[in-house]
Structures are given as C-alpha cells and as structure tokens.
Design a protein around this nucleic acid. Structure first.
Lengths: 155, 155
DNA sequence: GCCAAACTTGCAGTTCGCTTCAAGTATCCA
DNA sequence: TGGATACTTGAAGCGAACTGCAAGTTTGGC
C-alpha cells in the first residue's frame, strides 16, 4: 500500500541488497526479467524480489549462477515455488550442504590427527595429499578442493 | 639413495601433483624457490616437496596464496616447521575449519526450518537474508558468502 | 520548460589461480 | 655429434561473478 506496483532499478537494488550492476548482469544472464518504460528504463515486478532472495539463497548454498538459472527456468515465470518445487529443491540443497559439511569435518579430523601425532613432515599428513612417495590409491576419493570462503562481507 | 639430490621441474611436478606451470607461478609469487643450472634451468631442493605439501594443505583449508605466502615467509627458508610453528599454524587452521563448519551447519539448519515450516515465500527465509521488509539488524552477523566448492577434481 | 538525479548501453577492467602458447635454448644419451 | 626431449620466457587467455566508466537519454518535481 505504499504506491506503485513496479520498482525501479535503484529500489530493487536497495531492497534486495544487490548492486544495480549485478541486476543488469543477472538480466543479461537470464536469471531475472524487467519490463521497460517507453523511454527504455527498467521496471521490475515486485516478484523479482523473491527471485533475488532465491538467487541469494542458492548462491549461499554454493550453486553457480548457471545452476541457479537452470533451477529458476523450471519454475514457471515469476511463480512462487509450489510445495513440491520447494521440496525438490530443498532436498537437493540439503544434500549439497551435507556434503560440504562432511568434507570439511573430514579435513578437520585429519588436521586434528596431524596435531595429535605431532606429524610435522607433512609427508603422510592427510590434510595435504601430495601423492608423493606413498603409492597413489587407484582412484583416490581424495580431498577435492575446499572453499574459498567466508571472508567477504555481505553488502 | 636413488641418485641426485636436486630435482627437475618435471620431477617436482610428478611428485607433488602440481603442474609445472603452477610451480613457475608459485615461484613468481614468492612461495617457492629454485636454483638454476648454468643454462638457466630450474633445479629444486628436495625440501620444496614439503613446502608444496604445505601449500596444498593450506589451500585445502581455504587460505589464499597470499596468506600462504605470508605464513611461509615466517618460517626460515626451507625449514621444516618446528613443533611450535606447527602448533600455531594448526590451531589457526583448526579455527578456520571450525568457522566454516559452523557457518555451513547454520545454513543447513535454516534450510531445515524452511522445509519444516513450509515457508515458501522466501521472504523471511533465513537461508537468504534479503534485508527486504524486515528491518536490517544494526551490524548483522549475517550469513556471509559461502563456498564455491567441491566441484573441481584434484590433478 | 528546466534541470538534477537517475537511468541507459557497451565495453573494458578486476580478482584468483592458474593454463596455454610460441619461439627459442639446454640437457642427456647413444 | 646429433637429435629427442625437457626446459626457458613473456604474454595472453580463462572462467566466474561481477564492477566501473564514459557518453548519452529519461524521468519527474518545481
């Protein structure tokens, strides 16, 4: 009840927390849409805010923009996800998060054992898996690369 | 007892699991060193393998190359970390991993509550923290950005 | 109608951690 | 000595997710 039902770029930026440049970028990449005034300026539906919240959430969970784009593409335009949409998605995300947590905990455990055993050589240290000397396992489950993480602040 | 005590680029690459190009890059960035033959080719001390194992481990823990460089710079050249070096470092790493795990678990818990409460609107969903409508907390601890993760394979 | 503020576009630039390339040089073994 | 193989350099490129800039246009309040 506070006026117009379309939003300008700066309004969406302010309310979503995304920079205007990011909004244009997401539009180019097909993640969001905007209509245009006769003069060519963007005007957003209020629903774009939900979409942006979804994008932020998915990105927090570790999805790439491309993955997010695909996931959004399966939801009819601008629609709020139905219960089954959301169930499917959240189960997927839950699994991703579980994997990440498990990988980090495994790494942490290895580090602990390094500390515990006083292993300073780093040769057999599980936290680096150099493949040096020790015979390579046939198809090592391996540590896989870990996060580049939490050091950026939001907004 | 298997010959020379210096290593060529390709030997170090093979034994460390890093590509030769990565070794050159690390050298440019001041993370490792090599002496040169009269003809200008690189020859590595065996100790570089430990250093590379350290680099891999640190990178798995989520440090940037710059942070790794700084940490290595505090260890006298090529020296194996002493017990107290390693203690200091491993405590730091452990803390980082703990933070990462905690952040992920918090996110996962939020997701669970989203599923549980059937909150489909994404407006108050903790997993995206849009800042929309709801008053921003003064200095939100916030979700901070999460991993870009585990999808690359090693080697 | 005026004018400042907000908007438009395209393109270049940024950061991180490398990889690839081309053209030339060194090393090692027979 | 010849030649295969390994090495050298600098520069450019990559991919992800944006940001910044310049030059021009639109909007909207007075």
């Amino acid at each position: 009840m506070d006026g117009t039902d379309v939003l300008t770029v700066s309004q969406v930026a302010a309310r979503s927390g995304f920079a205007a440049s990011a909004l244009r970028y997401y539009e180019r990449e097909g993640l969001i849409e905007a209509s245009r005034t006769t003069g060519g300026q963007r005007r957003y539906q209020r629903s774009v805010l939900r979409r942006l919240a979804f994008i932020r959430a998915a990105s927090n969970v570790g999805l790439t923009l491309e993955e997010i784009r695909l996931e959004l593409a399966e939801l009819p335009r601008g629609r709020t996800p139905t219960k089954s949409d959301w169930h499917r998605i959240s189960v997927d995300w839950r699994g991703r998060l579980d994997e990440q947590v498990a990988a980090l905990q495994a790494l942490r455990d290895k580090l602990d054992s390094c500390i515990g055993c006083g292993c300073l050589s780093l040769k057999q240290c599980g936290i680096s898996n150099p493949g040096d000397e020790a015979a390579d396992s046939d198809d090592a489950p391996g540590a896989a690369y870990l996060p580049r993480l939490l050091r950026r602040q939001m907004r």
